[in-house]
Design a binder for these strands. Structure first.
Lengths: 240, 240
DNA sequence: CGGACAATTGAAGCCGGTCAAAACTGGTGG
DNA sequence: CCACCAGTTTTGACCGGCTTCAATTGTCCG
């Protein structure tokens, strides 16, 4: 039940997005792509830029964020292996509303706009899958908004730790707690708080035996406890 | 420029959503609908419910919101005349993630799921328009998220007043400031704050000559001033 | 080994939430 | 038509969660 809810925080993987495609269509998309190696911290696209294609994350992790008035950034999503980037702006026929940057060394394939749109125009399958994916994203956004507007920083931190635990799960050993690898600053920008507040809360969580942490890594060791801190009552997916 | 930005807060009107349809398709949608009169405060659908169709707002206004853990509600959108409701859940093939309720007496047409999906399956036009609309909504949501996470209540209030001014604009006299007709509670739930805080800020705005207000109505009289309070620097749409 | 950057800790102060109560409004029935 | 009641708006007081500023410690790399 909670599992269902958390899994709701993942976009459809590209495998699913592209699964209705014919072999030729698939080739037309992925085959036309150019794969580029980004090192940690590189910007993939920037808010206000003109979209010229979409990006497929082959490996690594990417933060999607928006610059704030005060010079910081608000992170609202983390993309990992197998996910697509930058298709919203293309579909909406707008400038990028957000920025994307790697938080790890990553391999990313660029698929030119024309190839994507051509396949999209000819595949009702892809259209429908995208509509479904976007419809689903809607509920994720409403959740974020409600969380930000009504929950304490403490609750939001706990909640984000649960999401990150999923996000950083090893495909080899999915059973064990993940090593969450994210700078304090990025984590703070994700939770929507100041670095200092974040650090203090992490200390508390550690002292309470909920997590263990080093400089660069956080690991949940008392999952039940973190869930309790997150106060997910009423977020039962059946009730969402 | 600001105008562009604010207009970004409106979803595509249904006229636009349905404009690529043939006469038969249009008839199949709207003709199959049943129009119902809702009085102020009635609930149209509820989070967790099973979607059985979509709703078209003929007249009146509808709030979209999500119940919060503490028993309140977070309003994240206001629908008015000509807008569609409830299609996200249908597209995402999920339960409703949010609730919708009228804030005025309203006429709303219900279009059954099957009719909608049938037309959707046969019209690439409609698919594309919907994809475009959803892609656009994306940028609105990340704006909301960034605003909630990084702006003060005061800034958010000013910003929401500007949105509401557009939302309540009379089609007859579009030039003049709107009479914003929304209960304090609803406005507070939209801004994401407590009633009391909202009231106090409204007082300040009034004393500062930015707005005038009665019990049930708010009107912006110093638009420039409100824009200044909202601190929109960096929200230039070109830079979004 | 030094220098830059990230993480941590301390202290002060304010924004905004909460509780409580008064003022006001509109609607209803006598 | 007026008095009363319920709901909404407003004001007051208090306090606590977070932000901010500042300074210290820790860590990674060239």
């Amino acid at each position: 039940m909670l599992k269902n809810f958390l899994s709701g925080n993942f976009r459809l993987k590209t495998d699913q997005l592209f699964e209705g495609l014919t072999a030729e269509e698939h080739e037309s998309l992925m085959g036309s792509g150019v794969t580029h190696l980004y090192s940690k911290g590189e910007i993939i696209f920037r808010e206000g830029g003109i979209p010229t294609g979409i990006f497929y994350v082959l490996s690594g992790r990417v933060k999607k964020y928006k610059a704030t008035a005060k010079g910081g950034e608000q992170i609202f999503y983390l993309c990992s292996e197998g996910e697509l980037l930058g298709y919203h702006a293309l579909l909406g026929e707008e400038f990028y509303p957000d920025s994307a940057a790697t938080i790890e060394n990553s391999q990313i394939t660029f698929i030119p706009k024309d190839n994507f749109l051509k396949v999209l125009r000819n595949s009702t399958e892809l259209s429908n899958t995208l509509l479904k994916a976007l419809g689903h994203e809607f509920s994720l956004f409403i959740n974020s908004i409600t969380n930000l507007a009504t929950k304490s920083v403490r609750e939001r931190l706990a909640f984000n730790l649960l999401i990150l635990d999923e996000k950083f799960k090893s495909s080899v050993q999915p059973g064990i707690p993940s090593d969450i690898n994210l700078s304090r600053t990025d984590l703070a920008n994700m939770v929507g708080t100041a670095k200092e507040t974040l650090v203090r809360l992490l200390q508390e969580f550690k002292r309470a035996g909920l997590i263990e942490k080093t400089d660069k890594m956080i690991r949940i060791i008392d999952r039940k406890g973190v869930i309790k801190e997150a106060n997910l009552m009423g977020l039962n997916p059946r009730k969402m």
